[in-house]
Design a binder for these strands. Structure first.
Lengths: 204, 204
DNA sequence: CTCGGTTTGTTCTCGCGTTCACAAACTCCT
DNA sequence: AGGAGTTTGTGAACGCGAGAACAAACCGAG
């Protein structure tokens, strides 16, 4: 489920606040979902709660982390070190959740001298070797739209099976490869759409 | 609908390629959706196609742009000029779609000397004045999680009704205020989840 | 003018996710 | 020990979006 990471984050916050135990209602409020939905999601993983009491925060947190897979280390490569690539490489939320950026790749030779977030930028052609050496399964595409499909093809070609795509393009990949896409401008456009309906009045 | 921006982007690409007319099947392939779903979405806006022919690319593009609201100019403020804030301020996809970054705000005084993407960074306390002067309706939060709720409250307080939140927190806002959230690490965690199930084998 | 080919707009059905509601189970107090 | 109160886990109904299928409409050729 796509909500497990949200629960995990809420549990981490609760744990840091010193809460040892919490009810489904409490956790649901912290995660911003319905309590029934939360209980059903959790029951899908197994019975980790105690009736009349609630859930043990740390225990449940570990169980969800294990289910998601963030107890292990995930090596990640980032391709495209523009503004967004920089931001992603420096994003602390990755490392703290088990994702380790093992390489930054860019096709532009002028960037190969840079060192970003303690990792130096390497030529895109090193992809195959890096993926092999570190057993990378997850790739991040932060290139312009035109290069994205080529990068995806190369990634798939050397065994990457999960891609996070920030380029504004629809990637076509073979079956068995997961692609998640994040398009920043689309999010703003959705907001603008609702905003327009709010102020301008619905013409129905 | 949340798919309209995707259609708009696909239509723009088609238009740049010189395509004057396209069928729902063709456009659906470019947008990565089912053709029946596409037709249903478009019919929701009105009958802009011609049976037996298809859709006029530029005409449909304008109609969708108008429906979303990107034909007008949307002033936007960005709060929090860390790595992500920098990337957002420099992101060309915003300006090209009618979003104009009118101000960059940060609570840290050391950043107030910087100029990012041609806009200089100003103190967070200038928020009210900027929002009033430019009639800002959309705010972007790129601060750490702890500051996000306070920033959101201030934004709501001075009349902002749409918020794009990059901080890993659930924001609570009054009715009538739209919040969309983008959490980069959650996307990676979802990929890791599927990745784990792929390689490790489903224990069902 | 008529007919065949093509494509849109729409209706209908199906399946999934969400939500309500309730029984089972646990704790605490008396 | 027993009962009241609380909270989980789950069964059932509801609603909604997705996909397939079909009728209406348009173009072009003869």
């Amino acid at each position: 489920m796509a909500r497990l990471p949200v629960y995990l984050r809420a549990l981490t916050t609760l744990s840091e606040q010193g809460t040892a135990t919490c009810s489904s209602e409490h956790l649901a409020a912290a995660a911003g979902v319905n309590s029934a939905k939360l209980r059903k999601d959790l029951s899908y993983l197994g019975s980790y709660g105690t009736r009349g009491v609630g859930y043990d925060v740390d225990y449940l947190r570990y169980q969800i982390a294990r289910e998601i897979g963030v107890t292990q280390d995930w090596p990640v490569v980032i391709v495209g070190i523009g503004n967004l690539g920089h931001a992603l490489a420096n994003y602390s939320g990755f490392r703290s959740r088990g994702f380790r950026v093992v390489a930054l790749l860019d096709a532009d030779p002028r960037r190969h001298e840079e060192v970003v977030a303690g990792v130096d930028v390497r030529p895109f052609d090193d992809l195959e070797q890096i993926v092999r050496d570190h057993s990378v399964a997850i790739g991040v595409i932060a290139t312009p739209a035109l290069a994205a499909q080529d990068v995806a093809d190369r990634m798939v070609g050397c065994g990457i099976t999960s891609i996070l795509n920030f380029a504004p393009t629809v990637l076509s990949v073979p079956e068995g490869v997961d692609v998640r896409k994040v398009d920043l401008s689309i999010e703003l456009q959705i907001l603008a759409y609702h905003e327009q309906r709010k102020t301008h009045g619905a013409t129905t």
